[in-house]
Design a protein around this nucleic acid. Structure first.
Lengths: 335, 335
DNA sequence: TTGAAAGCGCTAACAG
DNA sequence: CTGTTAGCGCTTTCAA
């Protein structure tokens, strides 16, 4: 099957390629009659314009890039949904790039965007990302960039995120209200790179309630599951074991529950647990876990919407856009 | 910043664009000396070739499309990881398209691939997909297509999936071995569209063990959570309530556990539960749920690998490739 | 209202 | 070994 191009359409209709092109675009220069003929033949032959030819000519790819640290994590999967739904509606295509939390990869990926492959970029940076030259450079090449979830403060552009600081604060307040005096914050060591808002919120709540920060306040986990398990077990085995835990990374809930089970520590009796989580199974854990849930879909959707605004309106300034979508506290039996 | 193109490189070096192009490609026609000069300037000016220009010229986009029913579901998120890792290694880009289980959308998306935007397609079809014309048409336009997970039997091409039939069989055998006599299979009504291998496997196990198919064997759920809950509750409230349940859709585990909790039905005492699941929290449910887990990452990886083989070797015939990666039964306390 | 022609940036034949 | 040229398929002036 020889692909049908604009020239073959033109030949069939005894028109010039230029005229056909305009007719397809519904240009005012073209007569209604001609438009009808062109459209009808185009439909009949199922003409699909070559994306690379028109992209080259117009210097627009009708494509956006989404750069993510990972995607197995449910936050980003859901965010992709939000992004994709907006893009599909706008007739845009979505390229996905995973950095696997690797700064160098992020740099390489962004640099490649100078190829004109995409018209705009949505990015959630890696935990390692401190330097911002690669993003600034991309911006100064004229590429609109929207940051979401994992924000970099120094970059001037649209930012969409949740209220991490407040979430940490609210979660901790909740634990304190439930009687906790000795609270630990569980996180991944690597996330120290970007300012850990949640932890700061947690800290603030402790301070406001005159609860001292104990040496076991911050428990640093890693990607080594066995090790995390050990660390948590040792935490919960000791004498002045915490009476409340704030689990800032979803998957760390698992060792916490496992250890409690093994040590026969009653939740919420001896230990109250609250977790950042998007998992629908929160409600069937035993006990059902109190969670802070991020509006992942909405964050993706909002970020994409901003990007398209800047793509469609030349006078739209991304710099002025900051959106904060609040996370939701759902109280269940674990507290 | 005026984007640096191949002509500006040529001018700087007093060479012709053609020579520069060849040098960048490390062509044998070019002297080592010239190559060095070109490469060094290209690096210095951070030259990134225009993807649309070279794509148009070479009729290759260095991009593949991944067409998925959804992505919130963890199976597909993990599969994307597998796909992306192979693509990144091969220097390819990955476009994501979500059909949201909508056949018409799937058709529209595939039709657009005639634009030359992608060199190959990985697809997991919607539950509604019975007709195959859109896929055949894409193939006959010369596009390599690899099916994964949600396979269509009628299409002749590479297929990568797990052993759904056997998984259903094995899961059911397990329940029977644990003493179940009255087993129900929980699924989503819509998945009736594609042949439900898992259910057939389940059926076969029942038959082999001379267990009759009761009227409550197949429980049809939907996307209406409240309704699913009601249906499951009514199932588990009646006199000849099942003593074993095979949950074929991950999220249906939630109402099952909730109902058991509400009715004070002991798992595994009164009811044994086994679920198809990729959720790491399986082990902290109470009781920990016995699962069948699909090798999602590996399926994505294998599918992508096949696609790239066909992209790289003209003599590679996708038709002959069928890969079945077995799911894994993990026995926990719910059975 | 339509057509002709140039050119987006790159590559590949061919010539030198 | 390097340069010239044509052209990928489309859009967009400009001219008719």
């Amino acid at each position: 099957m020889p692909a049908v191009d604009i020239r073959s359409l033109a030949k069939h209709l005894n028109l010039s390629p230029g005229t056909v092109s305009k007719a397809l675009k519904d240009s005012y220069e073209i007569s209604a009659e001609t438009k009808k003929r062109v459209l009808s033949l185009a439909k009949k032959l199922n003409y699909v314009p070559n994306a690379y030819a028109s992209g080259l000519r117009k210097k627009r790819s009708k494509t956006i890039a989404v750069v993510l640290p990972e995607v197995a994590d449910s936050f980003f999967s859901i965010a992709i949904n939000g992004i994709e739904s907006v893009a599909q509606q706008k007739g845009y295509h979505v390229l996905i790039y995973l950095t696997h939390e690797n700064f160098l990869k992020e740099k390489t990926i962004l640099n490649d965007f100078k190829s004109g492959r995409v018209d705009g970029v949505l990015i959630s940076v890696t935990r390692e990302t401190i330097a911002t030259k690669h993003i600034l450079e991309l911006q100064s090449s004229g590429m609109p960039v929207v940051l979401f979830d994992r924000i970099v403060d120094q970059i001037e552009t649209a930012k969409v995120r949740t209220n991490d600081f407040e979430s940490g604060y609210i979660a901790t307040q909740h634990l304190i209200k439930r009687g906790c005096k000795n609270i630990s914050y569980l996180s991944n060591s690597k996330s120290l790179g970007i300012t850990n808002e949640r932890m700061e919120g947690c800290r603030k709540a402790l301070e406001e309630n005159d609860l001292s920060i104990k040496k076991n306040f911050f428990i640093e986990c890693s990607n080594d599951e066995a090790n995390n398990y050990k660390r948590i077990k040792s935490l919960l085995s000791q004498k002045d074991c915490p009476d409340g835990i704030l689990v800032s990374i979803e998957k760390l809930t698992i060792p916490v529950y496992q250890v409690c089970n093994e040590l026969k520590l009653n939740i919420p009796g001896s230990l109250k647990v609250i977790g950042f989580s998007l998992s629908p199974s929160a409600s069937i854990l035993n006990p059902a876990i109190t969670t802070i849930t991020q509006p992942a879909y909405e964050i993706g959707e909002a970020a994409a919407t901003l990007l398209f605004k800047s793509l469609e309106k030349s006078n739209f300034d991304l710099k002025n856009e900051k959106i904060i979508l609040p996370s939701v506290l759902t109280i269940r039996s674990s507290t």
